[in-house]
Simulated assay, not measured.
Amino acid sequence: MNIRRPRRQPRENIVPMINVVFLLLIFFLMTAQIAPPEPFAVELPSSDAGTDPASQTTLHIDATGLPGFQGLTGAPAMELLIELREKDAPLRIRADARLEAARLAALLGELTEAGFFRVEIMVAG
């Protein structure tokens, strides 16, 4: 008696597809730019000039003059900002549009004393 086993259909190899998906995942993780969250919402003043700032260090200032940097607010934020200061790198300031100009001018004086000589003030375009 001759008993034949039914032949199994050959399965498709999914290893190449898994490799491609894995490589795409690595590519997107390596090229993604993850930005830290802003410490508080800031409404920017408007401007007609259309230049993009070059700096990556951003100091946030709310309408009351409270500074924020990398999740910290107040004096600890300023201390961390001064500690992480890069030589000759501009500092980007995102100040609320309702911030008084006198408070901003005083803050700019404090930043100059701390060693920040290049400052870029962000405005809405």
Rank of each mutant, 00 (worst) to 15 (best):
residue 49 A to P: 00
residue 26 I to E: 00
residue 99 L to N: 02
residue 125 G to W: 10
residue 84 L to F: 01
residue 96 D to P: 07
residue 49 A to L: 12
residue 27 F to R: 04
residue 97 A to Q: 15
residue 112 T to A: 14
residue 98 R to H: 11
residue 61 I to K: 02
residue 77 A to G: 04
residue 51 T to V: 13
residue 57 T to I: 15
residue 103 R to E: 11
residue 39 P to W: 08
residue 37 P to D: 14
residue 2 N to K: 12
residue 37 P to Q: 13
residue 5 R to C: 03
residue 28 F to W: 12
residue 86 E to G: 13
residue 59 L to A: 01
residue 22 F to M: 09
residue 33 Q to H: 14
residue 37 P to S: 11
residue 109 G to P: 02
residue 56 Q to H: 12
residue 74 G to I: 03
residue 96 D to I: 05
residue 58 T to Y: 03
residue 84 L to E: 12
residue 87 K to F: 07
residue 92 R to K: 13
residue 109 G to Q: 06
residue 30 M to Y: 13
residue 65 G to P: 03
residue 95 A to Q: 03
residue 66 L to R: 15
residue 37 P to C: 05
residue 121 I to L: 15
residue 33 Q to M: 11
residue 119 V to I: 15
residue 82 I to K: 13
residue 71 G to Y: 03
residue 96 D to K: 06
residue 7 R to F: 06
residue 28 F to R: 06
residue 44 L to Y: 09
residue 100 E to F: 06
residue 36 P to M: 10
residue 111 L to P: 01
residue 71 G to Q: 03
residue 109 G to D: 09
residue 54 A to K: 15
residue 84 L to T: 14
residue 38 E to V: 13
residue 67 P to L: 04
residue 119 V to N: 02
residue 73 T to K: 11
residue 73 T to Y: 05
residue 56 Q to P: 04
residue 82 I to L: 01
residue 69 F to G: 05
residue 86 E to T: 07
residue 5 R to D: 08
residue 41 A to R: 10
residue 26 I to L: 14
residue 27 F to Q: 03
residue 109 G to E: 11
residue 63 A to T: 01
residue 119 V to T: 11
residue 107 L to Y: 02
residue 96 D to E: 05
residue 48 D to F: 12
residue 74 G to Q: 00
residue 70 Q to K: 15
residue 38 E to S: 14
residue 113 E to F: 06
residue 18 I to M: 11
residue 91 L to Y: 02
residue 68 G to A: 10
